[in-house]
């Protein structure tokens, strides 16, 4: 009977994922109300549970895709994959008020540029401090501090070694996780209240996964504004990383 149940779940992966995530959100709503008295947003707890399950899945399967590598939960990979994520993000545009978005136009671009430059400088400087003193490694790790996609794309373009690439991806993933967890905690300090502030956040915090999860856990209505800007972040980083940022780093290190 157990194997029949297992077969039912594995051959209906996406459906099983819907059920599992629904259950996670049910539990986190309960924790939010009963244990934190509404102080911690249910979505934030759900995301934390998701990350914890991803850690368990990674240890259990030895794979790179967290819970999605455990065959019973493979459907999570489909549900939380890039296709569904982007589809749902695009749908949130329905809640955007065009005039609010227009008001933040210029400051959005400024924060996008700062959001690429600042993490890059910090990442590259720390790489230098820890002994990665060639321009290629510094650029790759710095790019990883922008997002975990910009890191490997830049590294591949300028010929970084695979351990530096792995380090650069790890930097980006750690950053995304920090943004996911940290945003609702420091939302007041960041001044996250308005569409404009969400767009500034989207440009500076970068990583789409971090921004979208962080804002979701703070205030669901801010998501589309942050996501609208953040989706340009990776593209801009992949553009600047292997070109301008690499050349400047090389010139400074020479």
């Amino acid at each position: 009977m157990l194997s029949t149940l297992e077969k039912a779940i594995t051959s209906n992966g996406l459906v099983a994922a819907f059920a599992l995530v629904g259950f996670i959100i049910l539990i986190s709503g309960f924790i939010s109300r009963k244990l934190t008295f509404g102080r911690m947003h249910g979505s934030a707890i759900a995301i934390l549970i998701g990350l914890a399950l991803a850690y368990w899945g990674g240890i259990y399967s030895g794979g790179q895709k967290g819970l999605a590598d455990v065959s019973l939960f493979a459907g999570i990979g489909l549900m939380g994959g890039a296709m569904m994520r982007d589809f749902a993000i695009v749908a949130t545009a329905f809640e955007v008020r065009p005039d609010e978005a227009r008001k933040a136009g210029l400051i959005g671009i400024v924060s996008l540029l700062l959001g690429t430059l600042v993490p890059f400088v910090v990442g590259a400087a720390l790489a230098y401090y820890f002994g990665y003193r060639d321009a290629v490694s510094m650029t790759t790790i710095g790019a990883g501090a922008v997002t975990y996609i910009v890191g490997p794309v830049t590294g591949a373009a300028i010929g970084a070694s695979s351990d530096v690439m792995a380090l650069s991806i790890a930097t980006g993933v750690v950053k995304a996780i920090m943004v996911m967890i940290g945003t609702p905690i420091v939302a007041k300090f960041l001044g996250l209240r308005t569409p404009r502030s969400a767009m500034v956040f989207g440009g500076l915090a970068g990583t789409v996964s971090g921004v979208s999860a962080g804002l979701a856990a703070t205030d669901r209505r801010l998501v589309p504004y942050g996501a609208l800007v953040a989706t340009f972040h990776t593209g801009l980083g992949c553009f600047l990383g292997p070109s301008v940022l690499y050349f400047v780093t090389k010139a400074i290190m020479a």
């Binding site: 934390l48 998701g50 850690y55 967290g66 549900m79 996964s209």
Partner: peptide, 12 residues
């Protein structure tokens, strides 16, 4: 929910 599923497949 999609974001929760996304969190569950990060390489933590």
């Amino acid at each position: 929910p999609v974001v929760v599923a996304m969190a569950a497949q990060q390489n933590v």
